[in-house]
Lab assay of single mutants.
Amino acid sequence: RKEMTAACTPRRRIINLTSVLSLQEEINEQGHEVLREMLHNHSFVGCVNPQWALAQHQTKLYLLNTTKLSEELFYQILIYDFANFGVLRLSEPAPLFDLAMLALDSPESGWTEEDGPKEGLAEYIVEFLKKKAEMLADYFSLEIDEEGNLIGLPLLIDNYVPPLEGLPIFILRLATEVNWDEEKECFESLSKECAMFYSIRKQYISEESTLSGQQSEVPGSIPNSWKWTVEHIVYKALRSHILPPKHFTEDGNILQLANLPDLYKVFERC
């Protein structure tokens, strides 16, 4: 597991931080080997919608929660590849102030007048994250320049770009939802926020969305749709870069829909 690298990086740093090793061990302890084997050997059937997909393993048909699986995938990559990410360069710098204002204007932020003026909160978020810029760049390849612009994001899987519609809320939550006081809790909560931002979430995906850094293989055609990215990038990574937690067998994120021999018997009677 320590050699797990989802995106190509030129050289690998050895990380011996106790906090990170502890988080890696927790993933191992909570892992479910049968689910790992199923995901490793599954045959992708198709997307139901951005949140759900169908896959077959041996004779069984499964309904998989793409949102939760991708979130767990990105969390584990962030923990196992800690401080070893490439950088996704933004085509132009994104001012943190503008991103924070967009987030505060969104109902998702939960902002009320009692929280104070949005401009003041946005300025605080910019200054707060600028103070964390060195650590964010060093460990997470999340790059913020001296003017308070976001200029780079971590490359977690080759050819995958997170849904940038979720970027404003991500920046807001970096400042408000991460435990910045304790090292282990900081790395864990920061990785979880980043994983949620990178995950496939239906509120940020339309039929026209593209999450891939590449064009489709047909010359002159439109960019790959999110469905292509889910199948050929995300579920491909799920084959080798995730140890599913045991609770996925109990919380409805992986559901067995049918045993195909039983279905064949039904059709034979028709």
Rank of each mutant, 00 (worst) to 15 (best):
A94C: 12
L90M: 04
M101L: 10
E177P: 00
Q58W: 15
T66L: 03
N224V: 08
S212W: 13
D181E: 06
V20L: 05
E33S: 13
N224D: 10
Y160W: 07
A55N: 11
T210Q: 04
Y204I: 06
Q256P: 03
Q24K: 04
L61T: 01
Q76R: 09
R201G: 13
N224W: 10
S199T: 07
P117Q: 11
E146Y: 12
G148N: 05
R239Q: 10
S212R: 11
T18W: 15
M38H: 11
L90R: 00
L136A: 05
I151E: 08
N224A: 09
S19T: 05
L39M: 08
P117R: 15
L238D: 00
M196C: 02
E26K: 06
Q58M: 10
L102F: 11
Q203G: 04
Y80V: 03
W226K: 09
S43F: 13
P219S: 09
S22V: 11
C270K: 14
K132Q: 04
E250Y: 15
T18I: 15
I222A: 11
R269Y: 15
N16W: 15
N41M: 09
S189I: 13
E165K: 03
K60N: 10
G152K: 04
L121F: 02
V20F: 15
T66A: 02
E143R: 05
I79T: 11
F97R: 02
C47G: 10
M38D: 04
V45S: 12
G252C: 11
Y204V: 07
P223L: 04
N259G: 08
H40V: 11
A83F: 08
V87I: 08
D105A: 14
T66V: 09
E26T: 05
I233K: 05
H32K: 04
L174R: 00
E183T: 02
L190S: 01
F85L: 05
L243H: 08
W226Q: 03
L121T: 01
A100T: 02
S43T: 06
F248Q: 11
L155Y: 08
H57T: 04
Q256D: 09
P95W: 12
K131W: 15
I157F: 08
M196A: 04
I15A: 11
Q24F: 13
Y124W: 02
T229S: 09
Y198V: 00
R13P: 12
I233F: 14
A55I: 04
V161Y: 03
L88C: 09
V34T: 08
K131I: 14
K184V: 10
S22G: 14
I77Q: 14
D115R: 01
I15T: 03
F197G: 00
M101T: 04
G166I: 03
F44S: 04
P117N: 15
I151T: 06
L102P: 00
H42S: 10
H247A: 09
G31P: 13
A100N: 00
T5N: 08
F85R: 13
S199W: 00
I205E: 10
S91K: 04
L104K: 00
M38R: 11
N159P: 06
H247R: 06
K2N: 14
P162T: 01
N149M: 10
L35Y: 03
R173T: 08
F85D: 03
E108N: 03
W228L: 10
V48M: 08
A83Q: 03
R89A: 13
E119G: 15
G220C: 09
P162W: 00
V126Y: 13
L96D: 00
E193K: 02
L190K: 00
F128D: 01
L167I: 07
L174P: 00
I151F: 10
L211D: 04
M38E: 11
L190A: 02
P219E: 05
N224I: 09
I144E: 01
K2P: 13
S216K: 05
F44P: 01
V126T: 05
I254C: 04
L172K: 01
Q214W: 12
R36W: 15
H232K: 07
K130H: 14
F197D: 00
E26H: 11
P219G: 10
L142V: 04
R11V: 13
T249M: 08
F170G: 00
K68A: 13
V45A: 10
N179E: 07
V161C: 04
L63R: 06
V234R: 00
S206P: 08
R12L: 11
L17Y: 15
E147A: 05
Q203T: 06
S106W: 07
L238Y: 11
E188T: 09
D262V: 10
L54V: 03
G86K: 14
I151H: 05
P10K: 12
P107C: 07
R89E: 14
L155I: 05
L69E: 00
Q24D: 13
N65K: 02
K227R: 09
L69T: 03
E231G: 14
K192Q: 09
I169P: 14
Q215K: 03
S91H: 10
M101R: 02
T66I: 12
E146M: 05
K60C: 11
K68C: 11
H232A: 12
V126C: 05
F170D: 00
L155E: 09
L35S: 04
F267K: 01
D158E: 05
A94T: 04
G213N: 06
V34Y: 14
R269S: 08
Y235T: 05
S191P: 01
S189E: 03
E250M: 14
P117V: 15
N259S: 07
E231Q: 10
E33V: 12
E147G: 04
A237H: 09
P50W: 06
P95G: 06
L211C: 09
R89T: 10
L88W: 06
I171C: 05
T9G: 10
T210R: 06
I242V: 12
R173W: 00
E72C: 07
C8L: 11
E119M: 11
K118V: 15
